[in-house]
């Protein structure tokens, strides 16, 4: 499948993300001739263990999450970041997890927005919001390069495109910038050939970064 990079908006110190920034980013995609194609939506859920005895805290993962991606509507991805595990399963794994009653949903987030076509690239810009409210928690962007599946072979063209994009957005003098943190896919047992599991890992990495940024800001405030 075509390779993609998932970027997130990193607000400058002391600032927070808001809908005005999201509007500006969307306008920026349209100003570089991105053709609007339709909506997209991904869902990410953090799970926490159900413990019989709360006083005993066994070594269970606190960073266990599940992701559904629009590119694979019949699949579900489970990730434990700390142990570098990504699992691809059928959507029915969610029913199995519910029936097991050993983990429950702690928080769920939507990533949703519009998709744009720009030559060989497909861009998706969207907001990150909790499933039960409209509070903006972050801005996310997927950059997909349609002709290639090899991460190494597409590295240069991808970096060139992201540089152009960053330059275009910097002209708007917004209080922040887009950031890409490439996970070490090999640690997850993933190859150079891009798959939806790579996308799931990128989302988990972006979420960890968003949480870290918001924790720092909360501590400052």
């Amino acid at each position: 499948m075509p390779l993609k990079r998932v970027l997130h908006w990193q607000p400058n110190a002391g600032t927070t993300v808001n809908t005005q920034i999201l509007n500006e980013v969307t306008q920026c995609v349209e100003s570089i001739n991105g053709v609007k194609e339709g909506r997209w939506k991904a869902t990410l859920t953090y799970y926490k263990p159900i413990l019989r005895d709360q006083s005993q805290a066994p070594e269970l993962p606190r960073d266990f999450l599940g992701i559904s991606l629009p590119e694979q509507p019949n699949k579900y991805y489970l990730i434990i970041r700390g142990q570098r595990i990504v699992l691809e399963a059928d959507s029915s794994i969610q029913t199995i997890m519910e029936k097991l009653q050993s983990y429950k949903s702690r928080v769920a987030l939507y990533f949703e927005g519009f998709q744009y076509q720009l030559g060989d690239f497909q861009l998706r810009v969207g907001k990150v919001t909790p499933t039960h409210s409209d509070n903006l928690r972050g801005i996310i962007m997927e950059v997909e390069y349609l002709p290639l599946s090899s991460i190494d072979k597409s590295r240069q063209v991808m970096e060139e495109f992201v540089d152009i994009w960053k330059e275009a957005i910097s002209k708007r003098s917004l209080p922040g910038h887009f950031m890409h943190m490439e996970p070490n896919f090999m640690e997850y047992g993933l190859s150079d050939h891009y798959s939806s599991q790579h996308t799931a890992v990128q989302y988990a990495t972006v979420m960890a970064q968003l949480i870290a940024t918001q924790s720092v800001q909360a501590a400052r405030n």
Binding site: A89, D90, S91, S92, I93, T95, I96
Partner: peptide
């Protein structure tokens, strides 16, 4: 309930 899953 059944689900296919990767080998890990």
């Amino acid at each position: 309930v059944e689900s296919k899953a990767s080998k890990n």
